[in-house]
Design a protein around this nucleic acid. Sequence first.
DNA 1: CATGAATGAGCGTTCATTCAT
DNA 2: GATGAATGAACGCTCATTCAT
Lengths: 195, 195, 195, 195
Amino acid sequence: MSRHTPHLADDSSRRMELVRAAARLFRDQGYERTTVRDLGNAVGLQSGSLFYHFRTKEEMLVAVMALGISSTTEQLEAALKAAKGARARLSALFHVHLNSLLGENQAALEVMLYEWHSLSDATRPGLIILRDRYEALWQQVLDEAAAEGLVKPDTHLLRRSLLGSLHWTVQWYKRDGELSVSELADRLLALALTA
Amino acid sequence: MSRHTPHLADDSSRRMELVRAAARLFRDQGYERTTVRDLGNAVGLQSGSLFYHFRTKEEMLVAVMALGISSTTEQLEAALKAAKGARARLSALFHVHLNSLLGENQAALEVMLYEWHSLSDATRPGLIILRDRYEALWQQVLDEAAAEGLVKPDTHLLRRSLLGSLHWTVQWYKRDGELSVSELADRLLALALTA
Amino acid sequence: MSRHTPHLADDSSRRMELVRAAARLFRDQGYERTTVRDLGNAVGLQSGSLFYHFRTKEEMLVAVMALGISSTTEQLEAALKAAKGARARLSALFHVHLNSLLGENQAALEVMLYEWHSLSDATRPGLIILRDRYEALWQQVLDEAAAEGLVKPDTHLLRRSLLGSLHWTVQWYKRDGELSVSELADRLLALALTA
Amino acid sequence: MSRHTPHLADDSSRRMELVRAAARLFRDQGYERTTVRDLGNAVGLQSGSLFYHFRTKEEMLVAVMALGISSTTEQLEAALKAAKGARARLSALFHVHLNSLLGENQAALEVMLYEWHSLSDATRPGLIILRDRYEALWQQVLDEAAAEGLVKPDTHLLRRSLLGSLHWTVQWYKRDGELSVSELADRLLALALTA
DNA sequence: CATGAATGAGCGTTCATTCAT
DNA sequence: GATGAATGAACGCTCATTCAT
């Protein structure tokens, strides 16, 4: 594996530090408006030095997105394994998604949602695979839940509808309000239930 | 005021032509990646000539967004006026929104959804007003519908959830598929109904 | 005489209005930093319309300078004709120069002093002739004054020295101070006198 | 601090090279008419590379002016320290000023005199301080000279008059004429002496 | 590993000037 | 005489990327 690979395996601490800083900056300022000098400053490096760790700026964007979606997928897999029954698994969908999107992985996931069109055609497919893996977990659980009558049977459209709802929270949810992330997850789940 | 520019008072046809071209380009390439030379080419003008019609590139972005949200709001107002009963009005919400977002105003509305952070702090408030006017219509109709038991009573969150669902269609809906926009509106509405 | 000639003869009132506005703007903002739109605004014309009155922006600069130096020369000629004796004529030099430079013709003369290098090589000679005519008057009077022992005999250098002194007043003289232009002229004259 | 940059602390040789080239270009063509591409050409750099050394074009203008006035002030301080007696110090004023203005620092000082209005309001004060320091030296020496009766006692106005005379030499003095700078200094001094 | 300096293409914007109406 | 729209070249500046040290 070359030392320029964007995969997660050999991520030195410097690389991870950079990815995390990039996630925050890309989210706050947008990918285009974030300069490599900004990125360098954020980790105490000259802009030229970044190119030892990443071949291009876009590679940093890809790394940010991959981190966001992968770690959320891993969390969801773990939560689903632990959950007993369709109802609990359905609940896990909402809780893991919102905890990730509105919490730890917020920056990376927002970048994933809003900088999709900053990707070149060459890099998009790799991320689509990661995204599809995540959505496949959702589909499975929704199908189970529909089989038990917990949600309406139009699960394909339901998956898209729910993911749209949850993604959108990022635009209006305020951490410092009276509504906790967990309560929000419960209330959004309630809206989706048949009864 | 020319008789061909019904929406915005002094918009000459050249201005409108530019706004429409800008909507398409900003949507397809992103605001930052669209150059004023691209915009000029799209309407057969030198890049410098654009600045006779708009003071800055950002002014074009604002005009695009304002056009998208204003014309959708007008269509919704007209549809609600024509609709009899809570059920019909609820349906109008879904149909107008999707017809606009996936049809005529697609480009402008997508720009509104995805280039929000390209606005400067100075221009954002004006657009927030337009957006809030549109969402207030939604809130009214949802409250009516909840009063009649058509939807669940948590209408504040419901409004946000539904708008998130509908906005997200832009990411996956394909015009050339077997699903028409009208059918999509009906099926998404069905998911939101209590029964 | 073509209607685009920069000479004074056929100056319509619009032309003169423009020249005076240009003098003020060129002085306040500099020639390069003054746009033809600024000039148009100042006289209530669109920028394109200026080019009916002047072929180029530089022609306006030339007209401003020519106005400044010509009218000062005329005033000096009149004052010298009226003055009796070398001492009175010497005094007229200082008074006319400062009244013009710090008063009515201030803007035009400052432009003459400070925008010399904004002229093209083609237009400079015409203005040099006007300037030399003015300086020749100074030389005559200084020679007379030296012959009577009023000033030192090195009149060539003296002329340059004195004109430098007087030109420089524009950089520091404040109209609203306690020193009147007339007093300033007297005191500068006193510094030049042998006794 | 390199041992080759005695005047301004962190001026690398590239910076100084640029300042000197800028002085010449700003003087010959004017600040506004000199493009950053001209400046780059003059030192063998791409225009964009200039902005590694200076944040803006105006910063180069300020550096040019500061260099001109600072180095002249230093020379004058040195000459005054070496001079014995009021007469010698008075002479130093003229000789140092003209040697600087018509010699080594010509370009930078001319820029200082003629591009004052190209400075923004924010940068002007810093240079006014430097200019005032220089003029304060003049005032001291003139006061001494007046006390000994060498020059007329109206020293405040005299300072301004003399500086105007000397500044103006730049407009007419030709290096290749029969008059040397040193002779010119002596003859201008002679004009200022009471006897 | 990291820096400092440079590249070079491109960016949004300006502006004197032109010209059909 | 004047306008409104357009031109087109140029401008100051930005920035991802390169590379010798």
